[in-house]
Design a protein around this nucleic acid. Structure first.
Lengths: 271, 271
DNA sequence: GACATCCTTCCCGAACACGTAATATCCGTG
DNA sequence: CACGGATATTACGTGTTCGGGAAGGATGTC
């Protein structure tokens, strides 16, 4: 189930999304899909599974925060305000069902339970605790993404604005088109904003100039130095030392990658 | 020569135009009815829950004021005159039931009680205190919004005027079609008023000229410079330095955004 | 019917962002 | 160490976007 159709390396963009991230003005109306870019809290103590699931969700365009135990999960839920929680049934310390119950009490956030056991008892226990859906391992990541989308569609108000992105000290709000870094607002141009937004949503992932051109500009051809120059201008505004980038790094011969300086990000785990 | 508009003692505002009130047109919410834009006082001492519920209500088009204890609640109720009160049963200091009783005594405002306990006793106690409805935690925010709408529909007279909007030093009353800023009345024309009303209800969100044209003017086509000109005239009246706007900002290549100078906002809580 | 107010459209200048090209620098490799 | 390709840096021309001014039209008032 896992391992096979996992990360497509660096080759392909999340092609599932034809929509460009570009200018937004020339594009017709916003939010074709309200479930896009939503925040997901993944509670899973097994690092391998957590990693794969996270990659898949990120690939699908979600923001993912990981917690490895129940208490961390509750704390992260309070801080990051996820739009959905993926909750492993078996957890060290606080049990999954209990976490679910508390989550629903405190935040009324939709929950999808994950479990290795497919017994009827568990299913009932989970749903009674207030889970919105139930997925048994082993599951295909593809199916999981579908379920997530489905639950989100039911739970997210139709025209709610896209959630903001908080990564590596950045706080980017698509609705307001503002970004701040460590609290200080940044004055970015439209292209710079779109470029940064794209990269912030996919941290730690390399993108070639072609891919960026396609994703941010919406062009299939064109002078790639355009990307280079914009990266350069963006660095000028977000890097402490633009000459020696610490955030928006160059991957020689390949492209660019955004590396969030993960000092903040909660304990237990991070993005 | 646009310079001087005489401040009206009262009357100089343009009379309400017979055409439909474009200011209430919105591209983000369903079904305009009498319950729209109503003021809700949320009394809840747990900040996390308060935050989530507030977000949901705002999303649904309500104005939300938060109080974290019973006394603050009573004071805010007297000052802000909410159309409905969401009241946590468990409160530090003054108990929820007692708050409810005093609220009903002082103002005839509908109350929905929130409680963690679903016991019959509580329900009865709450309803006896005069609550109009009763929601037990954990509750789904969607359900809560439905209940709020339902109670409001019963309590708000059908053609009662829309509640006023108080944001960033502005106080806008749709019914009277008056606006004041920091207490000083503003003399706006009809279009200016509609434009400001729209923006005030959606602070910190960028709108393109097309969107504004659609929302405020109700046109699908048309010369977008119309919007530009009205924005300029509006700035002339609401900005301290119209040349360098601090409230109604232009987002280059995208549109305009209203940024309330958030210093005021009621005590005991925030927006 | 004269007048005033407001709305819309148009024009022009300035500011701005963008793409491109030209040059310098860096990097891995032979 | 030298070479070639990739990336960084800088500069410049151009098209777009915005704001100010003003004219013409519509509407309501006296």
């Amino acid at each position: 189930m896992f391992g096979k159709d996992v990360l497509p390396g660096s080759g392909a963009l999340p092609a599932a999304r034809p929509r460009t991230y570009a200018g937004s003005v020339n594009n017709t109306q916003p939010a074709p899909d309200a479930t896009e870019h939503r925040r997901i809290l993944l509670v899973e103590d097994e690092p391998t599974i957590a990693g794969v699931v996270r990659d898949y969700l990120v690939q699908a365009g979600f923001q993912v925060v990981i917690a490895t135990d129940g208490f961390t999960a509750l704390r992260l839920a309070a801080v990051r305000r996820p739009d959905l929680v993926l909750l492993d049934r078996m957890l060290p310390g606080l049990d999954g069902v209990e976490v679910c119950r508390r989550l629903r009490a405190a935040h009324s956030v939709p929950v999808i339970m994950l479990t290795a056991l497919g017994t009827e008892d568990d299913r009932i226990l989970g749903l009674e605790a207030g889970a919105d859906d139930y997925v048994t391992k082993p599951f295909s990541p593809r199916e999981l993404v579908l379920r997530v989308r489905s639950v989100l569609r039911r739970s997210v108000p139709e025209f709610s604005p896209e959630p903001s992105v908080e990564v590596g000290g950045f706080d980017l709000s698509p609705a307001a088109r503002t970004v701040s870094r460590h609290g200080r607002p940044l004055a970015l141009t439209a292209r710079e904003f779109d470029l940064l937004a794209f990269m912030l949503r996919r941290p730690r992932q390399v993108f070639s100039r072609e891919e960026l051109m396609k994703a941010v500009w919406g062009w299939d051809y064109g002078d790639l130095s355009t990307v280079t120059v914009h990266v350069r201008r963006l660095r000028e505004k977000i890097e402490d030392d633009p000459t020696r980038p610490s955030v928006l790094k160059t991957v020689w011969g390949v492209g660019y990658r955004l590396d969030p300086s993960d000092q903040e990000e909660s304990a237990g785990a991070d993005l």
